[in-house]
Amino acid sequence: MVLLSQKKVEIVMNTLTEEQIYFLQHRIKLKKKSRWLQILANYKGIDINEKMSDQEIEDKLDDWILVDIKDGGYQKRPHKCDCGQALRFQYIIQNKAKGAVRYLGANCFENYLSLPSSVIKDVKKGMYSIDLERDEILLKHKKNLFYPLQAYLHLPLPQDLLDQYEIGIPLTDNQINLVERIHTTFEQERKLASLFQRLTIEQQQFVSKLNQKDRRELLLSIEEGYAESFLHLEDLSEYSETLQKQIQLNLPLLERQKQSVEEWRLAKKRETAFNALTLEQQQFILSLSKEEQTVLLDQIHKPLFYHYDSIKNLPLDDRIKQQVELQLPLLKEQMYQIAQAQNKVERLTK
């Protein structure tokens, strides 16, 4: 989308009421000032976040602040720059440290601030995007495209958005997306509240102590009807009391808890498999890397593919032969080496 011409902006603006015109112009000024403060704060390396108000950001700055942008109207130049040039758009800036106020046109605005070209570029880009939002609103108003916000008035919507709806100004696509995100969050919270009420008192007390993210995941798991009732407490004696209590209450485990329990079970299974081996087999396994030990112990009960007599005369590493002789499973790369050795011998005997 490209900006509307100033003439087209004026034509649509003239179809609005005075209240709507004031609201839209005031909104544009506030958004441009907010964007200016954010860009300047970022340039100055000042730490800000999305929860901070414009006033809080402004309080951190000791520099030129954008106070207002005045629009004299289509084909009119009622304002003046400090350099004497007649202006339609006048940028009013104030130096917080000295209190000095300057009335500037677009060119002097850029030159006076002595900011890097990259910062000026960001300012222009920010102002342009806000003007695009204005044009989006005007085009929607012209085409009578109004979002049915009345169906969402029960939601905790921003007051400026409600005010915009009340005076008959269409919402932008970004505002509509915000409404729908708030609606989705609201419905999820209502669902979670309903799931929470289905729990026993003891389960509710336990769930209430979880952080918001874990509580949400656990409650949604309950909706799916999933619980780790198959786990036995005596098997989890090494785990925290919290996890044991969770299972005792027949509450589902979180994904990270399930992964942790599964890793614990596999470790126990490997330990059992290792203890069942002969001393010679154990010593051989301990000579391997941790990764190789894990892979080998996970395959300990699988059928063996080779017997020692079938590979003892092949050109193989002694370790592979020893491993087969000890009746231990082979790693994939070892089996590949045996297959290669067999092919080599077959070619030589032909």
Results as ranks from 00 to 15, higher is better:
102 R>M: 10
219 L>R: 05
276 A>C: 08
234 E>W: 12
72 G>K: 00
190 R>S: 09
119 V>G: 03
60 K>M: 08
344 K>S: 14
52 M>W: 00
50 E>K: 12
232 H>C: 09
84 G>Y: 01
340 Q>C: 10
336 Y>I: 13
144 N>K: 13
43 Y>T: 05
285 I>L: 10
57 I>N: 02
279 L>F: 13
205 Q>D: 14
87 L>Q: 00
259 Q>A: 12
180 E>T: 08
10 E>I: 07
109 F>C: 02
171 L>T: 01
197 Q>K: 14
295 V>G: 07
133 E>V: 07
318 D>L: 12
88 R>S: 02
26 H>I: 11
183 H>I: 06
123 V>L: 09
277 L>N: 01
86 A>N: 15
57 I>A: 03
98 K>D: 14
163 D>Y: 08
146 F>H: 11
215 R>A: 07
254 L>W: 04
10 E>K: 10
67 V>E: 10
222 I>E: 03
148 P>F: 04
78 P>I: 06
79 H>S: 06
301 H>C: 07
206 F>A: 01
36 W>I: 03
277 L>K: 00
291 E>I: 11
256 R>H: 12
188 Q>H: 09
113 L>S: 00
288 L>H: 00
147 Y>I: 06
138 L>V: 00
97 A>S: 15
327 Q>G: 07
317 D>F: 08
311 I>N: 03
237 S>K: 13
271 E>H: 09
293 Q>H: 05
112 Y>R: 09
340 Q>W: 10
342 Q>N: 06
186 F>T: 05
104 L>Y: 02
98 K>P: 00
260 S>P: 04
141 H>C: 07
328 L>R: 04
281 Q>R: 04
277 L>C: 00
100 A>P: 06
273 A>F: 07
33 K>V: 10
165 Y>L: 06
11 I>F: 10
6 Q>R: 14
18 E>K: 14
247 I>M: 04
235 D>P: 05
136 E>S: 03
29 K>G: 07
160 D>Y: 11
106 A>Q: 10
347 R>M: 12
144 N>W: 07
162 L>I: 15
107 N>T: 15
334 Q>D: 06
114 S>V: 12
28 I>K: 08
184 T>F: 09
145 L>G: 07
311 I>Y: 00
74 Y>R: 00
276 A>L: 12
60 K>L: 11
293 Q>M: 04
57 I>T: 05
110 E>H: 14
304 L>P: 05
149 L>K: 01
98 K>T: 15
185 T>E: 15
323 Q>D: 04
67 V>I: 15
283 Q>D: 14
37 L>K: 01
168 G>Y: 01
133 E>I: 08
5 S>Y: 10
166 E>R: 11
343 N>M: 15
322 Q>D: 13
289 S>M: 01
97 A>V: 15
290 K>A: 13
153 L>P: 02
271 E>Y: 08
201 I>M: 10
179 V>W: 00
196 F>N: 00
146 F>I: 08
256 R>Y: 12
11 I>S: 11
6 Q>K: 15
65 I>F: 02
193 A>Y: 09
263 E>V: 09
292 E>M: 07
292 E>W: 06
336 Y>S: 14
294 T>H: 11
307 H>T: 15
34 S>A: 13
17 T>V: 01
43 Y>V: 06
251 L>H: 03
295 V>P: 05
231 L>Y: 06
88 R>H: 04
154 H>Y: 14
249 L>D: 03
21 I>T: 13
91 Y>W: 05
26 H>N: 15
127 M>V: 13
141 H>W: 10
277 L>R: 02
221 S>H: 09
325 E>R: 14
